[in-house]
Amino acid sequence: MTITAENVKEKDNKKGDIMSGRVIVITSGKGGVGKTTTNANIGTALAKAGKKVVMIDTDLGLRNLDLLLGLENRIVYTIVDVVEGRCKLRQALVKDKKNPNLCLLAAAQTRDKTAVTEEQLRDICEELKKDFDFILVDCPAGIEQGFQNAVAGASEAIVVTTPEMSAVRDADRIIGLLEAREEIKSYKLLLNRVRPNMIKSNDMMSVDDVVEILSAPLIGIIPEDTGIITSTNKGEPIVNDEKSLAGQAYRNVARRIIGEDVPFLNLEEDTGVLSKVKKFFAGLIGKEK
């Protein structure tokens, strides 16, 4: 067997030698647009695809990522314990119930945003890069210190927004701030809670409208899905539900992050009576030709 570059690389990985993970911050400006949900789902999907993933919740005082993953009862140490030296970084990583590739570094619920500095977060990310393929940083809402901290260690960003004016406006602000930070090499837009029926009746901005207004590259379109609520209730990310359309959309985002070329889901395809009638007649005309 000849030794190719690929073989060498494989060996290195097996030995657990230098890995250089990608640090992606998931941010939005506005609260409630689905940052944490996005984080939990993309993280889970990446782990399901065989990647080693760690998620960092930087929303100190308002942590929720643990709930979405159903890990709230397993947290022993938090990120604040790590920076204050009460435990090793590795000890604070909580393993996912199902997927051993997935870990969570939880936020402290009893402290505020000043408990961790930009420098400390950068160091943590650097350390985690050695052992993980992906480090997903869940950013708090707002543009204050919490945001600055979360962005500090990242080199990529996903800006979550919805087709609502306030969310788009805040996303624009966030994009402006991300562009001002040299360490952020690229950012992508994830359009969440899209309602195809409302777009069809011109009661909601379309994907194209939002992309045009923000002029940012798109990485995902997630349809509004009541399943998100039930999956949060259960502490189980929706990507684990093979039938869910939102789950499918999140799995596609994960594949795009890995570098696959996955077409966007066609959400415009509707199953209403009108379209069926249209199709029926269109079919008849077609046959006549």
Binding site: E164, M165, D203, I213
Partner: peptide
């Protein structure tokens, strides 16, 4: 939708 786009 148009109102939203224009205002935005």
């Amino acid at each position: 939708k148009e109102v939203a786009c224009n205002r935005l």
